[in-house]
Structures are given as structure tokens and as C-alpha cells.
Design a protein around this nucleic acid. Structure first.
Lengths: 233, 233
DNA sequence: AAATTAATTGTGCTTTTTACAATAATAATT
DNA sequence: AATTATTATTGTAAAAAGCACAATTAATTT
């Protein structure tokens, strides 16, 4: 027996929801779709799964091809398979989300690729069911970030605590007490205080910190409370 | 344009990891595979996604066809797409997990279907990458059950607190203080105390409880601590 | 020198979590 | 009928975690 004859084959795609943080708001990276249908409209980074690649490989390839991004945080989100989601032909899509340091790639992306960062709240309408994918990705990030330190993936190597707090406040759409936030974050043991300061954001300047990678990997799966009163996320 | 020509189509399958609880240990429901390859070997409930059905529909259909189960808790777990995972032909599988009241279906399943409940710890080797699927499902349940009341799906409508505790101890492979567990669970407001007792398990008999469905649905997404000291799950 | 701006640090109160043991109800046994 | 055995049920005090809250410091700008 060589094949599962009689079974219907279908197209499998991968779509990536790419998140970035510019210090103010959350952003997602979109691309102008290069082929029909919906050619020219804003879309997630996507492509078809090739015969020889795994899903993870496919997501990484697409990310690389369309944005140049490599080695970023990438996680499978969910598979979307409504029969009519693509009007041309049945296509099931495995969605991934990525968290990237926006500054590391901002220039590169705009220059080399037909991609653009949009504020998550002001992003254009997306094709097919991609709106739903983004929404689900947003939920997943909130959920996970409330207990695991994934949001560091959105920051540069060196960052300040006020920057970190702004990020959390932005993701959870809330405000957090400075004193308590600082205590909470430092208590994790994930941060290493550096000698120099960031003087861009304030007169006094805020100390830079960087991740203690040892502890970061060790504690990534551990439960930590980053958000006060997490009720429903 | 009618099709995405030039793209490779492939087979899409759904596999279901079905969990049950017999009062003592966690179990999974397996089936003797009815076709080649690996015909006659133990396997998860699986099947191919049909042209007209969504992934959820596919999972529900497969569950119904192979076990008679209907209306049970079913959730998409993860998609598995290693190119060589099925030796016959490239097949990507979307895994779902189900939580069922084992007693409700125990007789029915054994009689009508080629399915059998196995202790999770003593289950036979599974085909392809299904071992990995089961492992991931086990992790997901732990993770989710630590914060959301999904384990009630494994119990009968009427259950006792000691039964519930045994279930939690079993899923998390730990022991929990009776007094604290009871307090914790009752504090959720999810339980309604009934008038009658279960006299099977003890001389004194333990009061039956049932879910307050109102609160159950309302609080399902809220965060609750069911497990003391959740570190890594 | 004064004013402005944002970063940094501490404490007491409240709530939650945890550790821990005696009593009650019933069936089985003597 | 009394005793024994078994499991369910209930409470409290100590510890830890979470929370609310304000004054001081460092540096730039005026």
C-alpha cells in the first residue's frame, strides 16, 4: 500500500502573527499580499507548507523569507480549518505567533520587504479569518505573559524597569503601581542590574537591566505572578 | 483563478486523546487500528478531515463514529506535522483531547466498539508520534486544571469531595491536605451540596455534590488556585 | 539657584495560603 | 449491645504573599 487512496488532500498553510513593542504600544507586522485573491490587501505573514518541511520549519521559513527575521520567539497558536475560510480552495492554516524586538528589525523590514508595523489597535482589516487569528494570539499572549516571562522577548537586550512596566501595562491594558511592580519583577531573580542608565526617557535616567539567561531558561516554565489580580485574561 | 496551482496538497487527520477517570487512576481510550499500516495495533481515535467539515466537526465526528461519545469536553491541543510521521504518505494531524465521564460510557464502548480503556501509565506503545501527542495532552491538562475547573468533566454529575481530591492528586501526582483542599474547592462557589451520601467508599458516607452550572460557565475562564504551590506543571 | 521631571525606595495592613488534629458518623466485629 | 475500625468533616493559628500608599533622589532645564 503506497497511499491512503480515496482520501481528499488539501492545502495547508502557516500564518504568523508577529508582535512588536515600540515603547508605547503593541504592534503587529503585516504584509501586502502578493497574489490573488485579496492581492494587495494587508495580511499576516503566510505561506503554504512544503512537502519536506515540518510545521515549525515552515513557520520559520516564512518568517525568514517575508521579513528576514530569524531566531525569534515563535510558538504554535492554533489551527484554523473552517471549510470556506479561503474562498479559492480549501486551506487549513496553522497559526503561529512571534515576539520580536521591534528595534532590531524596524529599519531592515521597511527597506527590504513589503511589510509594515501597525498599532495593534489601529491595524487595517485583514483577509479571511485572520482577524480571529490575531485576536486569539492576543489572548494567548496575555494568558501566558501573566504567568511566564515571555514579554522580555519584545524588549531589547538592555531595558529599564519603567520600560518593562509600560509593556506590561500595555499588554494588559491596565495600570500597575510602580513600587509593587518593581518589587515583583526583581523578586523573580530574572534581572541583572547594569551600571549604565538610559537617559532618553527622563532627566534622572533609569538603570538598564538585562535578563539573567540562566534563570530565564530555568524558570521559564515556572509559575510567576506578573499581574496583580489576574481574574480572567 | 480557481486553484492555488503548483502547491502540494496533503492529508489532514484528527487524532483524539480521550481521558477518563475510574476513581483510582487516569485512563485513556485506545482503539485497534483497522487499516494499514499498523493495522491491529493500538492507536488513538483518529481519522481524516473531510472536505466539508471544520476541524472541530471532524474531531466530534470521529469521536462519535469510533466511540459513540457525544457532547463531551473536547479541545484542540496541537498540530503535529513532521514530514515522516506517517510512513505511507505525508499526513499532518491536528490533535484534540477529550475529557469524559468514564462510567457513562464504559459499558457501551466495550460492547459496541473495538475500544478499550488503559491506565495512562500502563498504556501500550502507540503508533507513529502518538506517544508524544499523549504526553503533550497530559501536560496541557495539568496546566489547565491547575487554574480552570476542567477536571469536573471527568466526574459523574454527582460526586463527593474525596473523589474530587483523589482525581486532583492523581492528575498532579501529589498529595493534598484534606482540610485545605475542601476549603479551596468549596470557596470557588462551584459546588452544590446534595442531601444524599455516597456510601460505597466509606462507612460514614460522603455527601454528594454537583456543579453549579451557572457559576461553572461564568467562572470557567477565571483564574483559580486548585493546586498548592504550583511551580512548574 | 530654582524648578521640573521621572526613578527609586519602604512600611504597615489585608488577604491568602499553609500547616496541623480532634471529632463525628457509620459499618463491621466481638 | 458494646467495641472497634474506617473515613468524612470541621477550625485555627502562623506564615507568606499581595496590596495600598508617599517621600526622597538624581539629573536636566529654566
Amino acid at each position: 500500500m503506497l497511499k491512503y487512496s480515496k482520501q481528499t488532500r488539501l492545502l495547508l498553510a502557516v500564518d504568523c502573527i508577529i508582535f512588536g513593542f515600540d515603547g508605547e504600544v503593541l504592534k503587529i507586522l503585516l504584509i501586502k499580499r502578493g497574489f490573488q485573491p485579496e492581492k494587495g490587501n494587508w495580511s499576516l505573514m503566510g505561506g503554504f507548507v512544503q512537502p519536506d518541511e515540518s510545521l515549525d520549519q515552515s513557520a520559520n521559513r516564512i518568517l525568514k523569507q517575508l521579513t528576514g527575521l530569524e531566531g525569534v520567539y515563535l510558538e504554535q497558536l492554533y489551527s484554523f480549518g473552517q471549510p470556506q475560510r479561503d474562498p479559492i480552495e480549501r486551506t487549513v492554516s496553522v497559526a503561529y505567533f512571534a515576539l520580536v524586538d521591534i528595534h532590531k528589525y524596524e529599519a531592515q523590514i521597511s527597506d527590504d520587504y513589503q511589510a509594515e508595523w501597525f498599532q495593534l489597535k489601529r491595524a487595517p482589516k485583514l483577509i479571511f479569518d485572520q482577524q480571529e487569528m490575531v485576536e486569539q494570539a492576543r489572548k494567548r499572549i496575555r494568558y501566558k505573559a501573566a504567568m511566564h516571562p515571555i514579554l522580555f522577548e519584545l524588549l531589547p537586550t538592555k531595558f529599564t524597569i519603567p520600560q518593562l512596566q509600560t509593556l506590561y501595562e500595555c499588554v494588559f491594558n491596565t495600570t500597575i503601581d510602580k513600587r509593587n511592580f518593581s518589587k515583583r519583577v526583581l523578586a523573580t531573580g530574572l534581572l541583572i542590574k547594569l551600571a549604565d542608565k538610559d537617559k532618553a526617557g527622563s532627566k534622572r535616567g533609569a538603570y538598564y537591566y538585562q535578563l539573567n539567561m540562566q534563570n530565564y531558561y530555568a524558570k521559564f516554565q515556572a509559575f510567576m505572578n506578573f499581574i496583580p489580580n489576574p481574574d480572567s485574561l
